[in-house]
Nucleic acid binder design. Structure first.
Length: 502
DNA sequence: CGGGTTTGACCGGCGC
DNA sequence: GCGCCGGTCAAACCCG
């Protein structure tokens, strides 16, 4: 996974050196789509009439638009209006040229700023890496307990109070701990926890003990050696999605095994178990948000011990890879570790990926279990393909309580991201509309999380059909009945909260 | 009739 | 030690 990140960074570097255009176009494509939606009117018609492809996105195009418009106008009416019109046309040309120049200059500045941002980001990561190493050494001397500063979820697990308790218990009776947990996928969890894996991203793909299985690398459900790659006893991935549907479809089959009223929430919490394989330890909880009942909170725990259905796996590829990429930043795990566990004050509590535009995901170590929360109720600010990834950010555990997302999104707190370059508001609005209208997005992210937890690969493919409505519509094969039943159950589970299931 | 849901009971962890 | 709470179990029930 780290390789992916490196590769990605490498590509970024290439773009900076010689291929800035490619990246620019990549972003501008997206911007242009927004611009076309928000800003096209007369100019757009002119543009089409002139046969200029609107795919040449970006400010350069809009500049050309103005130029063309001005020139055309001048040409067509020149004979009738005489010299004054020519003069006027020239003035317009001049004005357009000026605007073009300004835009170019702005673009250049933007480029420089972006480069600067990336430099700062990378140097920050490097510095923080050093800091962590130093502190890790210090910690090692102080206590023998291997607080794994290297791994994201190890860190989180280490930071969580529950983990401390379990750790203490495991130190006394480690074997029993593993045995007694049997079916929950926690078996073979070495109490000493491995801190050998260097990449936080690798940890992400193994959110839970049995990861490394599932996804495409699972191949027949053979689990990865959990004892070696199961440093984290329990990690969770939580998805917040605005949905009237009773359950987010994620391509898996679930069986409800319990329902409970949770304290502080009038909505019951439903417990589901994956039934795609008899031994699959994956469970999920579905509950509506107490504050906003239109928000569905789905929490996944465990790792599939079987291949994911094609639909889910395919959907998961893109987003899982991107999500993992986002979490692979070295500062992430360190932040999680030291902010949560050592109460480090100095290091910035957030790590922002250069492409991260909005706060839609948080990583919490304050919960009983290390939990990654993806908030799909907030507008992402990047392309749909990478939106889920761009949303991933680290959140200081104590900086939020029940609703970390809005707080953070509002820029509350004293730890504002140092450098974030949000796209124009029109872009945000367009993307918001696009994503909220796209039912595949929620599904894709949900599936991505499953894939992440299963250690799925990074084969990119766009999300197939499906949506965030009742489960079952995207089950690649044979899952419809189960999923429908699950939806029925979830409907029952969520009905008391007023949202009408479909 | 088989598979899934419902729901009260049970269990273990945790705080007081 | 006791009570609370989250999570799970399992018998009864439902549905196609």
């Amino acid at each position: 996974m780290e390789m992916m990140v490196q590769k990605q960074r490498h590509e970024e570097g290439e773009e900076e050196r010689g291929g800035l255009c490619a990246r620019e176009i990549k972003e501008l494509d997206f911007f242009s789509a927004a611009g076309a939606g928000a800003g096209r009117r007369d100019d757009d018609d002119v543009l089409r009439a002139d046969g200029i492809s609107s795919s040449h996105a970006g400010f350069m195009v809009s500049t050309a638009l103005d130029l063309l418009t001005a020139v055309n106008d001048g040409d067509h009416h020149e004979e009738k209006k005489g010299q004054s019109n020519i003069h006027q046309s020239k003035q317009m040309d001049a004005a357009a040229t000026t605007v073009e120049g300004e835009l170019r200059q702005a673009g250049e500045e933007n480029r420089l700023l972006r480069r600067r941002l990336e430099e700062l980001t990378s140097s920050y990561g490097a510095l923080y890496h050093q800091l962590v190493q130093a502190q890790q050494l210090h910690t090692k001397h102080q206590q023998q307990a291997p607080i794994a500063g290297v791994q994201l979820l190890d860190a989180l697990a280490a930071a969580s109070p529950a983990s401390h308790r379990r750790r203490a218990a495991a130190a006394v009776d480690g074997d029993r701990t593993a045995d007694s947990d049997g079916g929950e996928g926690d078996e073979n969890v070495s109490p000493s926890l491995g801190s050998k894996r260097p990449a936080a991203a690798a940890t992400l793909t193994r959110l839970t003990p049995e990861s490394g299985s599932g996804g495409e690398n699972n191949g027949g459900g053979e689990q990865a050696p959990a004892a070696e790659m199961a440093p984290c006893r329990k990690a969770r991935v939580s998805v917040r999605a605005r949905s009237e549907a009773p359950m987010i479809s994620d391509g898996c089959q679930w069986r409800k095994y319990g329902q409970k009223m949770a304290k502080g929430n009038p909505c019951p919490r439903a417990y589901y178990r994956c039934t795609m394989a008899s031994q699959c330890p994956v469970r999920k909880q579905v509950q509506r948000c107490a504050e906003d009942k239109s928000i569905l909170i789905t929490t996944y725990e465990g790792t599939h011990s079987h291949p994911l259905p094609p639909a889910a796996a395919a959907m998961a590829k893109t987003t899982s890879a991107a999500a993992a990429m986002l979490l692979s930043g070295p500062a992430v795990s360190r932040d999680a570790l030291f902010a949560a566990h050592h109460h480090v004050v100095a290091p910035p509590p957030f790590f922002h990926h250069p492409y991260a535009g909005s706060t839609m995901a948080t990583l919490s170590a304050s919960a009983p279990f290390p939990t990654i929360t993806l908030d799909l109720t907030q507008p992402p600010t990047t392309t749909t393909t990478t939106a889920a990834a761009a949303m991933l950010q680290l959140h200081r555990p104590h900086a939020f309580s029940s609703l970390p997302f809005s707080m953070y999104g509002a820029g509350g707190g004293s730890h504002r991201p140092p450098v974030v370059l949000p796209p124009p508001s029109s872009v945000v609005e367009t993307m918001t509309a696009a994503i909220t209208r796209d039912p595949n997005f929620t599904t894709a992210v949900a599936a991505a999380l499953s894939s992440i937890m299963a250690g799925g690969g990074a084969q990119a493919r766009t999300p197939p059909r499906g949506g965030s409505d009742a489960a079952g519509d995207i089950n690649g094969g044979g899952g419809a009945d189960h999923a429908t039943a699950g939806a029925r159950a979830a409907a029952a589970a969520t009905q008391p909260c007023g949202t009408s299931p479909t």
